[in-house]
Nucleic acid binder design. Structure first.
Length: 117
DNA sequence: ATTATGACTGCAG
DNA sequence: TCTGCAGCCATAA
């Protein structure tokens, strides 16, 4: 797998995230084998193809990291809310509830009380 | 080859 | 809880 494959892998992982769930950059980087490459994941998202649900990717704090300045704000929040993700009053997401851990076969320790919607 | 930048993360204040 | 600083690493100039 060449370096360009890294981007492709990121996209594949993001595509695996179902509606109503989100993943962090570090999570993706970890799934790829390098938790330190979280930043490069962001770089990959910068080229986010249309067939990639980039809006389901947030930072480790459950906040939207997408640049709020690209000429206009991103519809990320609206998209997530439309999928059933409930935002906190401070604009944060409860990763304990919406965080996805089954990225490409993860050990997981999913809590038993994951109630969605 | 070297410096700067960034859609990140974790720790410290 | 929030802000700031340092560590990491691929891409750009």
């Amino acid at each position: 797998m060449d370096k360009a494959g890294f981007f492709q892998e990121v996209y594949e992982l993001v595509k695996q995230v179902p509606e109503g769930h989100v993943v962090t950059y570090g999570q993706i980087a970890t799934a790829l084998g390098n938790p330190r490459q979280a930043r490069q994941v962001g770089w990959a998202m910068r080229a986010c193809p249309e067939d990639v649900p980039w809006h389901r990717v947030v930072n480790g704090q459950g906040r939207l990291s997408t640049r709020p300045e690209m000429g206009s704000f991103s519809p990320q929040r609206a998209l997530l809310e439309d999928e059933g993700v409930q935002f906190e009053l401070d604009g944060r997401i409860d990763l304990d509830r919406y965080g996805w851990s089954d990225l490409r076969s993860a050990p997981v320790a999913r809590r038993s009380g994951v109630r969605r919607e």
